[in-house]
Design a protein around this nucleic acid. Structure first.
Length: 316
RNA sequence: CGCGGGGUAGAGCAGUCUGGCAGCUCGUCUGGCUCAUAACCAGGAGGUCGCGGGUUCAAAUCCCGCCCCCGCAA
């Protein structure tokens, strides 16, 4: 009888949560889950699906502040056969990656070498791509530069946003991972080097990336909205009779082929159908729901009942 | 003690500083008008002004305590 394969899982996001969930149903043993420390908030802890799923399945949870020597020794003590990493959120030192005899596998949400880095899902949406995918690869000291074990393409629909695309990718990624792991441990896969010449990089997303530039086209702004659906969202500034307030747009659509030449960029207006529109560099954005700073999210039509001056103002 | 905005009719808001009839826009109901509308006209219903206490002839408004929602920062 051979022993069960011992996995240590490392991950933090929603994407990682779905992958972990599928591993809990696999024939392998999950020795421990490593995830980011909980960030605290006045209103309670930020959700961490990985932590929650591990808790539910009675899996040991490690939330180290630093991936230092103490942590390295703790992991060594678990004698893992393989690491599985899915958007952990920190760069993992080579010393740790080298611990398992069957190496460290990463589930990355792009078709590598395209979109290496921490935000592949958002960036595929930002670029308006029609297709992305999942790559399972071996981890090395570079960022998403390791040899590829398997890949699967996923179509992006026009109505996909960060939430739906993450879910699609995670579900497909989970399947591909289980498949790949079983072949990998049986020595049935030859890793393939990445073509570095075709590589593209994506950056960590910052809150300020969510600010809208009205000079961009409606479809570019809408792509930003799709990409930043969960975080950081998209926002703009409204001068309400001298008081400049931040407004988050929480539901919008794009109207690419309309052109209101006589209006300013960022000007808010209505047409016969009463929808709230904003002029952009190319086409209009229709605002369906929004949230004024300090207030709850509201329907755009309700908002203008209370703030009729919104129509005709110019957003910055 | 991190900084700040807010809770008033089903929805969105004004009114609070300076106490004095509970307001606006939308929705809703009734009737009218129109070839027609997310249009227009007339009329109506709908409120423990977040909760508790205090001051006052009089409190949405001033004072004290509490609850809840949200933005920023981390």
């Amino acid at each position: 009888m051979e022993e069960k394969l011992k996995i240590v899982f490392m991950g933090t996001s929603d994407f990682a949560g779905i992958v972990l969930e599928s591993l809990t149903g696999s024939p392998y043993e999950i020795s421990a889950v490593v995830t980011q420390p909980d960030s605290r908030d006045k209103k309670g802890n930020l959700p961490n699906p990985v932590r929650d799923i591990a808790q539910k399945n009675n899996i040991k949870i490690l939330q180290p502040e630093k991936l230092d020597e103490n942590f390295t020794n703790e992991i060594k003590g678990l004698r893992p056969d393989v690491f599985i990493v899915a958007s952990y959120g920190k760069i993992i030192p080579e010393k740790i990656l080298e611990i398992p005899r069957m190496k460290s596998l990463n589930v990355h949400a792009s078709l590598l070498p395209k979109l290496r880095g921490p935000s592949p899902i958002q960036n595929s949406l930002l670029q308006g791509d029609k297709e992305t995918g999942i790559t399972i690869m071996l981890m090395d000291k570079g960022i998403d530069t390791g040899d590829i074990l398997s890949q699967k393409k996923i179509a992006i629909n026009d109505d996909d946003d960060y939430i739906t695309l993450t879910s699609k990718l995670a579900v497909a990624g989970s399947k591909l991972l289980l498949h790949t792991v079983s072949k990998w441990i049986n020595g049935e896969i030859n890793p393939v080097k990445q073509n570095d010449g075709e590589a593209t990089l994506c950056q960590l997303i910052e809150k300020s990336d969510g600010q809208i530039f009205w000079g961009k086209s409606a479809s570019e702004i809408h792509n930003t909205f799709r990409a930043f659906r969960v975080w950081p969202g998209i926002y703009t500034f409204w001068d309400n009779e001298g008081a400049v307030k931040k407004i988050s747009l929480t539901s919008i659509s794009a109207e690419e082929n309309e052109n209101e030449n006589e209006r300013h960029l960022g000007e808010v207006f209505q047409k016969e159908d009463k929808k709230i529109r904003v002029k952009t560099g190319k086409g209009n954005i229709i605002i369906e729901k929004l949230q004024l700073e300090g207030k709850n999210e509201t329907e755009a039509n309700s908002f203008i009942n209370g703030y009729p001056g919104f129509i005709g103002s110019v957003l910055k």
